[in-house]
Design a binder for these strands. Structure first.
Lengths: 346, 346
DNA sequence: GGAAACTCCGAAACCGTTTTCGGAACGCTA
DNA sequence: TAGCGTTCCGAAAACGGTTTCGGAGTTTCC
């Protein structure tokens, strides 16, 4: 109740008054406002006793410098914008967390905007960010498919995360899905698997294609090929995983490893295998992508997965943004290396 | 590449110059900066031809008003802080989305802070928010257990969401877990179930207790009691759900309904039931809490669940914050009504 | 004992807006 | 033609800080 400033007009509440300003501090300390400023910022030569008086005054008045006023002179606001395409998607989050982390608690503040995949909304948020004079912007996509860059002349650096910009002079950070595919294969190979099937997700996704590419290339390098000859594309769902796995074991009972497009498909496949009496991982290994904790650690056996290191992706994006703000960075696409998380299913 | 301002010092790039300011617009339009301001804000009496010239100049220079400067005079920044306790927890997200939604795209911008359940971090973020003179703050907890209020004198309104403040003079918005429990019971009762078991989560959580309370009261009102006499408390995991469900059907084979502490327990229970050859929902209904899409729609049959309407909770929090900024709002705890989402398992 | 070199401190300009208030130009009436 | 109202516009004062630059006071040194 000491919060709102909705005092009707009762003059009694002098204590409720406006927030203390530098002038107030200076007056209380008996110095000029210039000196107060210097004292608080540890600037120049200010006698120690003077500084102490100023600091004391500042704490007494609970003084917090007005960042807006400060930004006016410095030109920098110490804020960045983060435009996400879909917040409820689970990919934005770790990236956002990584970025938040890299910016350092308190130093840089993050404006969060959810564009929901809508270009109009995106434009709207962008304008708001520019009005607020953010020092830079990170654009986080919902899928790894390349997206058109932000339109208009943007007077601050922009980093594209997860979904790269189609403009190669922009700076983008994406997961290395091809490598992720290769890693999945070599993981299964090192577990002694040779007859591997690939149950993928929606073929329209770049991620599906790139993972398939990595898988194919790694198998070829090992002189092998996919059971069934090629990947099965479908949807990113458990249901698809269940059905596709059923068809695989019906047609190719010799299969001893399954690489699934994501952890949901992986979970669906596991369920089918178990229901059909297959022993995972003894008879068949199963591995997915994304390392979505709730999917991978829920079932028994727990599911191995390729983690795309999205938090690190977010941190990298933030670091790149920093560098861009300071000077130039090399344009182009950076790929974040994935890592294998081994659990009971392989 | 036209983004960074890292021009070493080459004076050639006059085009790369600093962002256009109101003065530039005024000069270009041949008017005073006061008039330019008025024209852009549709203020006072400005001759139409003059306004048109100013607007033309503004668009030509791609002028965006400096919000910081504007805030200096208005005193309001049009920003709010959102301090979340754990971003990766799935409860903050919908709340955050609801809030973002209610604030309206562009009008109000949201500073996102992740305190990770650490009071020090929280303090740090809070200071940063106050420096930036946010107009208000929403604090989102990770659990519904009451939490101590923010420390220190906060000169702006604060709304506590999901986790209420222990201070009853604060404003809090929480899900109505007691009602959620009641709803679960009445849903099963209306499906003709009478012998209901309750497999809950960690008893240390207020949510677990409140749901149990609601369940108990609704059953009592119907003249029934829980199979086994009381709720089974354990963990919020699928594994616990599997084990607990097994014990329930072993000991009480007459059970015809299971209320599970959350969707993960629910899923675990479903798996056990199916593996034991029970038919869901014919033989036994299953319902959980939270309505976590990936958990509820993944398995077959899909799982019914009580949705706590977290997005609406977020919207409500945002609206309350608005009202607090304008004037006063009644302190205390608001409870958001849940809703039953019926799927195949009941 | 006076000049030079320091050490502290404050007046004032500035950042980019909004807003008040007075003045100029104009049309109209007497 | 003087007087009066309107209508537009601009000078200037905020807003809350930072920073430059010069002035006053104190040492140090010859």
């Amino acid at each position: 109740m000491t919060t709102t400033t909705g005092t009707t007009d009762a003059p009694e509440g002098e204590s409720e008054a406006r927030r203390a300003t530098l002038r107030d501090v200076a007056t209380l300390a008996g110095v000029s406002i210039a000196t107060a400023s210097k004292a608080l910022n540890e600037r120049a030569h200010v006698r120690e006793s003077t500084r102490d008086r100023v600091l004391a005054a500042a704490t007494e008045l609970a003084f917090t410098p007005n960042q807006a006023a400060r930004s006016l002179t410095s030109g920098q606001t110490g804020t960045v914008g983060l435009i996400a395409d879909d917040l409820d998607g689970r990919f934005s989050l770790p990236i956002l967390m990584g970025a938040e982390d890299a910016f350092g608690t308190g130093q840089v503040s993050v404006f969060l905007c959810d564009a929901r995949g809508d270009a109009i909304r995106e434009r709207y948020h962008l304008d708001a960010l520019l009005r607020r004079k953010v020092d830079g912007i990170i654009v986080v996509g919902a899928r790894t498919d390349a997206r058109p860059p932000l339109v208009g002349r943007i007077p601050v650096p922009v980093i594209y995360a997860y979904a790269p910009s189609t403009d190669t002079t922009d700076v983008s950070v994406v997961p290395d899905d091809v490598q992720a595919g290769r890693d999945a294969v070599s993981h299964l190979l090192s577990a002694g698997r040779q007859r591997i099937a690939h149950i993928s997700g929606d073929a329209a996704y770049t991620a599906a294609q790139e993972r398939a590419t990595g898988i194919a290339s790694a198998l070829e390098a090992a002189g092998l090929e996919l059971v069934g000859g090629s990947a099965q594309f479908g949807a990113w769902s458990e249901q698809w995983g269940r059905g596709a796995a059923q068809r695989v074991i019906d047609q190719y009972p010799e299969v001893d490893g399954m690489i699934c497009g994501n952890d949901q498909i992986s979970r669906g496949a596991l369920e089918t295998l178990q229901r059909s009496g297959w022993n995972v991982p003894h008879q068949t290994s199963v591995i997915g992508f994304d390392n979505w904790e709730v999917m991978t650690t829920g079932p028994s056996p727990t599911l191995s997965s390729i983690d795309l290191n999205l938090e690190q992706l977010g941190r990298t994006a933030a670091e790149l943004l920093f560098e861009s703000i300071q000077g130039q960075v090399e344009p182009g696409i950076r790929r974040i290396t994935p890592r294998v998380v081994t659990r009971e299913s392989s």
